[in-house]
């Protein structure tokens, strides 16, 4: 810090020295993970900044785009609108936990690849988490239903028709797998 800085103190050793922090244990992708963070931290920022799970994306931080969609106890949730503290003790699944790191992809991930259901890919983790939930909720029975129940996830690259095709491909495969 140079002499012209408005703050003359030296930088603190770490967050805990100077800020009030919260000590949490989150169940993410089947593992217990400890998070020490500002009490106001959202689930999205806890995943991204504290746990290095950057698959979930920040597109608005206000519940308007769907890029941050994850599953909490099996339901799709906007992680930017969820306090990390409120997710303690619940089962959180992120895009990283949908399929094992090596080997076969989840049928929805494979279907997104097969149908080129993305371009820049930034909305994609959120789209896929929503798409999986869309099928398990039973909201993927018709094209119109899919379009309606996928409308919380914006795609500025506008891959929408390919996303619908991908969900139609993955739906029977997911059912087969779960049967």
């Amino acid at each position: 810090m140079d002499a012209s800085s408005p703050l003359k103190s030296s930088p603190p050793e770490n967050l805990r020295d100077r800020c009030q922090t919260l000590d949490l244990v989150l169940q993410v992708n089947g593992r217990s993970r400890r998070v020490v963070a500002d009490p106001r931290v959202t689930l999205l920022d806890a995943l991204r900044e504290n746990l290095g799970l950057t698959g979930s994306k920040k597109g608005c931080d206000h519940g308007q785009c769907g890029a941050c969609t994850v599953h909490v106890d099996g339901r799709r949730v906007l992680s930017c609108l969820t306090f990390a503290a409120a997710a303690e003790g619940k089962h959180i699944t992120t895009i990283e936990g949908l399929a094992p790191q090596e080997g076969d992809l989840h049928p929805m991930q494979q279907a997104f690849m097969d149908h080129d259901a993305f371009q820049c890919g930034y909305c994609t983790p959120g789209q896929i988490m929503s798409a999986v939930a869309c099928v398990t909720e039973g909201h993927a029975e018709t094209d119109a239903d899919i379009r309606e129940y996928m409308s919380g996830n914006l795609c500025r690259c506008a891959a929408y028709p390919n996303i619908v095709d991908a969900i139609k491909q993955a739906k029977p495969l997911m059912r087969e797998r779960d049967a």
């Binding site: 799970l53 950057t54 698959g55 979930s56 994306k57 992120t94 895009i95 990283e96 949908l98 399929a99 992809l105 991930q109 494979q110 997104f112 690849m113 080129d116 993305f118 890919g121 930034y122 994609t124 983790p125 896929i128």
Partner: peptide, 11 residues
């Protein structure tokens, strides 16, 4: 594609 559908693409 694989990087993008698994969340591994590093923006």
């Amino acid at each position: 594609g694989r990087l993008k559908v698994t969340g591994a693409a590093c923006y």
